[in-house]
Design a protein around this nucleic acid. Structure first.
Lengths: 188, 188
DNA sequence: CCACGGTATGTAAAAATTGACATATAAGGC
DNA sequence: GCCTTATATGTCAATTTTTACATACCGTGG
């Protein structure tokens, strides 16, 4: 059972979905914390069904094959619950931006500014997406921890905090880079 | 050229290293932003050498095979520079904690507290590591953007901000979970 | 009426990543 | 003298992820 299997179970615990709808959610709301393509989703769904953690019913839809709506089983709910509270492994980091920043000294401060300005813009846009999302939550979702909506709200709060932090950091770095450029020009 | 290739070039741009030393750095300092095992490093080194981006000299060391010290070439420096400032793709997120939090509503608030307390502890420890690291920087590294040390310092600043943010978020969530537990007991 | 985008499900090849297997030496502590 | 740890380099299998191929229907707008 890989992490993606649990991601799928987590989505199906909220509502029954087709593989396609699952794919869409792995792109937009869930994709911000764990992404996957449809080519990964379908095999996972077949595997989960083989283990009796999900089941499907054929419904009418518009594809070349039968449209299948997947639901979580009681067994699926059990394995999801035990995964959620199982010992947490140290987070595996993959940040291409940070990797680039570690090598930022190889380019000129002016060129570096372009990269950081780009990152700043990306994080600004992401923050806007999050803020719009935040506004769409019902008040109960912001405090009733037993609601699925609260779980989404909690991750969103974390995302907003992260983006604000990234914005502040980008601005600090941009300031440092510009201070250096100004100092260089002055000493010419 | 995968991202790991650039990670290796970025390290070799600072100093010549053996595959083993490279592996150690991909664990400790660089590993916080991009991790890799030694089984990935050696093939990458061979591929980079085949493309003339790195070269090696045999030195004396204590292994079953000849110890090789790798250096970056002028061509390697060029591709590193162009990668650093190339258009930045939107960040790919992989946070198992956030994925679990999205499914947190399936367990009791008391069980949820255990998970978040665990995460809080992990981020506290990571922050301590970063703070100790921060103290070891030379003053020039904190403002001279052309120094390799500044690049390291900049990523560290981001890491510290992220961990502080995560700590605040964990505490907020823990507060919400406890508030709910108290309210439940009171209404019994 | 026709093109386009969204709905819908799959396979296959390639690339990246992890985990296990395999080996060997030197330095330092007990 | 022995045991552990750090140094040191590789391969191989398995897993995970990405990218490309393959198909087809339905509603909307021009």
């Amino acid at each position: 059972m890989g992490t993606l299997d649990y991601a799928v179970l987590g989505l199906l615990a909220r509502e029954s979905l087709t593989g396609y709808a699952l794919t869409c959610r792995m792109d937009k709301p869930v994709g911000y914390v764990w992404s996957a393509k449809h080519s990964q989703i379908y095999p996972v769904l077949h595997a989960l069904e083989g283990e009796g953690l999900v089941r499907h019913r054929v419904v009418d839809g518009r594809g070349p094959r039968a449209t299948k709506r997947y639901s979580i089983t009681a067994a699926g709910r059990r394995v999801l619950r035990s995964w959620v509270v199982s010992p947490l492994a140290p987070p595996e980091a993959k940040s291409e931006l940070m990797l680039r920043v570690r090598a930022l000294w190889v380019v000129s401060p002016e060129a570096a500014e372009v990269l950081i300005a780009q990152a700043l813009q990306q994080h600004r846009e992401r923050l806007n997406v999050y803020r719009r999302e935040e506004a769409s939550f019902a008040v109960e979702d912001t405090f009733d921890v037993t609601r699925p909506g609260f779980s989404s709200y909690a991750t969103l709060r974390c995302g907003i905090g992260s983006e604000e932090q990234m914005l502040a950091w980008c601005n600090w770095l941009l300031g440092s880079l510009r201070k250096y450029s100004v100092a260089s020009v002055a000493s010419d």
